[in-house]
Amino acid sequence: MGLQRRYLLAAGVAVAAAAAMAVSTGLGFADSATTAPSVCPGSITFSAEAGTPAATSDRFPVGTRLRVTNLDNDRSAEVTVVGPSGSCVLLNSAAMELVREPGKNVIRRNVVEQLGEAAAPPGVAQPGGGQPDEVGDRPGSASPPASRPATGSACQGAITFFEEAATPGATSDRFPVGTRLRVTNLDNDRTTTVTVTGPSGSCVLLNAAAMEQIREPGKNLVRNNTVEVLR
């Protein structure tokens, strides 16, 4: 009889534990939901450009609709790609405000979903098109004409930065940690040499210190650039 009681007691404990797990999962204590795969790997940052919520991209054509979700606060923004950049998705200021947490300029845990494509809005340049009415680095400005082509660059598209208090550095979705890169702003011939310190959603994403070494005053993007791999 003592042995039978012990078996019955053990079975009762197992049933109770299973019931508790089921209840906790139903209440959201256990994470059973699956997350859709993201079409853009790595962190997301923004270009500091004004305007309604929008994005630029080196992967999706103008007119593509994307949904960007911050997994740390479950806030989402639906944006349209309006031009090229050096990132899979680079939000503008208005879009970033919709999804970021206070004081944070990078969204490390995120999901980007492609919602579909649409016709390019009038006056918006296609990536690489070089039309004179392409959106510039400041509201109402146009991108300056290239002083010389960025031939042989290891990264294509505009370069931006993320806020980080550190010595000049960069992150990348293409080059491994430790890779040394030379980034040159062809509009002012200023150069910075940086080491890749981690992953991001861009071919090269400078930190604030590196950006200060090459950008022109008031501009948060370096559109006319070349990136060399020094290794």
Results as ranks from 00 to 15, higher is better:
residue 160 T to S: 07
residue 138 R to F: 06
residue 137 D to G: 12
residue 138 R to H: 00
residue 145 P to F: 06
residue 147 S to F: 05
residue 123 G to W: 02
residue 132 P to T: 07
residue 151 T to N: 15
residue 140 G to T: 08
residue 141 S to D: 15
residue 153 S to F: 01
residue 144 P to H: 07
residue 129 G to W: 03
residue 137 D to I: 04
residue 142 A to L: 13
residue 149 P to D: 08
residue 123 G to R: 02
residue 155 C to M: 03
residue 131 Q to N: 05
residue 129 G to I: 01
residue 131 Q to C: 15
residue 128 G to T: 11
residue 132 P to R: 09
residue 155 C to I: 11
residue 128 G to P: 06
residue 144 P to Q: 09
residue 155 C to F: 00
residue 141 S to Q: 15
residue 123 G to Y: 01
residue 162 F to L: 13
residue 125 A to V: 14
residue 121 P to C: 10
residue 130 G to D: 02
residue 148 R to I: 10
residue 151 T to H: 08
residue 132 P to E: 12
residue 129 G to T: 11
residue 153 S to G: 04
residue 125 A to E: 12
residue 158 A to Q: 06
residue 130 G to W: 05
residue 129 G to K: 01
residue 154 A to K: 15
residue 156 Q to P: 00
residue 127 P to K: 02
residue 153 S to P: 10
residue 147 S to P: 13
residue 148 R to K: 10
residue 160 T to N: 08
residue 123 G to N: 09
residue 124 V to Q: 15
residue 148 R to Y: 15
residue 156 Q to H: 15
residue 136 G to E: 04
residue 139 P to V: 10
residue 152 G to H: 09
residue 122 P to Q: 13
residue 159 I to Q: 00
residue 134 E to Y: 01
residue 162 F to P: 10
residue 156 Q to I: 07
residue 121 P to E: 11
residue 138 R to T: 14
residue 137 D to F: 00
residue 146 A to H: 02
residue 149 P to F: 08
residue 145 P to S: 13
residue 136 G to T: 02
residue 147 S to R: 13
residue 157 G to S: 03
residue 147 S to W: 13
residue 148 R to G: 04
residue 143 S to D: 12
residue 156 Q to Y: 12
residue 126 Q to I: 03
residue 162 F to W: 08
residue 162 F to H: 07
residue 137 D to P: 03
residue 151 T to W: 05
residue 122 P to R: 00
residue 137 D to K: 00
residue 153 S to Y: 00
residue 122 P to H: 00
residue 154 A to Y: 10
residue 132 P to F: 08
residue 121 P to W: 02
residue 156 Q to W: 15
residue 146 A to D: 03
residue 152 G to A: 07
residue 146 A to L: 14
residue 146 A to C: 04
residue 144 P to F: 10
residue 154 A to G: 01
residue 122 P to G: 05
residue 148 R to A: 11
residue 145 P to C: 10
residue 137 D to E: 15
residue 153 S to A: 06
residue 162 F to N: 00
residue 160 T to L: 02
residue 156 Q to N: 14
residue 163 E to F: 10
residue 131 Q to S: 13
residue 151 T to P: 02
residue 161 F to L: 02
residue 126 Q to T: 05
residue 156 Q to M: 09
residue 149 P to L: 12
residue 162 F to E: 08
residue 144 P to R: 06
residue 141 S to I: 06
residue 146 A to Y: 00
residue 142 A to C: 09
residue 140 G to P: 02
residue 149 P to S: 12
residue 144 P to T: 10
residue 160 T to E: 06
residue 159 I to C: 00
residue 139 P to Y: 09
residue 123 G to D: 07
residue 143 S to C: 06
residue 139 P to T: 12
residue 128 G to W: 05
residue 141 S to L: 12
residue 128 G to Q: 06
residue 153 S to C: 06
residue 128 G to I: 06
residue 146 A to K: 11
residue 140 G to M: 09
residue 129 G to D: 14
residue 161 F to E: 03
residue 157 G to T: 11
residue 139 P to H: 06
residue 149 P to R: 14
residue 150 A to V: 08
residue 127 P to N: 03
residue 126 Q to D: 11
residue 151 T to M: 12
residue 131 Q to E: 12
residue 159 I to E: 01
residue 158 A to P: 02
